[in-house]
Amino acid sequence: MGMSDMIAVLMILGGAFFLLVASIGIVRFPDFYTRLHAMGKGDTLGIILILLGLCVYEGFTLNSAKLLIALVFVGLTNPVATHALARAALRYGLKPLLKLDQEEKKPSTTSKSDALET
């Protein structure tokens, strides 16, 4: 393995780590609006890192140009999708769980959200 392959593997591993963190974050965060942070940031950086790593591994070819287009597309659309979901939830009337709400909730039992059960 040459030097560029090492860099590529490191970048892909780093990207995989951030994707893993984003996945865990989507499961672990307490409410919808905090989960948006995991999707908006962790996923975007993870995908950008992995695609850049693949670009480095591929070298200077047409395929890496296509990978760069995919990278730019994801980098532009992932925040927009996050924003669209946030706006829809806000319009729907989903209340975020904020700092003071968390302190209020601690003594009492957590009441289940009554929003759009499917």
């Binding site: 963190v21 965060f29 905090t34 940031k41 962790g42 950086l45």
Partner: peptide, 22 residues
């Protein structure tokens, strides 16, 4: 972007999850 992702990662992996949303 890198800094933001590292912050989210540290918040997610921290066992107590130190967040104060506003």
């Amino acid at each position: 972007i890198v800094e933001g992702s590292i912050q989210v990662a540290s918040a997610v992996l921290h066992p107590k999850m130190p967040i104060e949303p506003a």
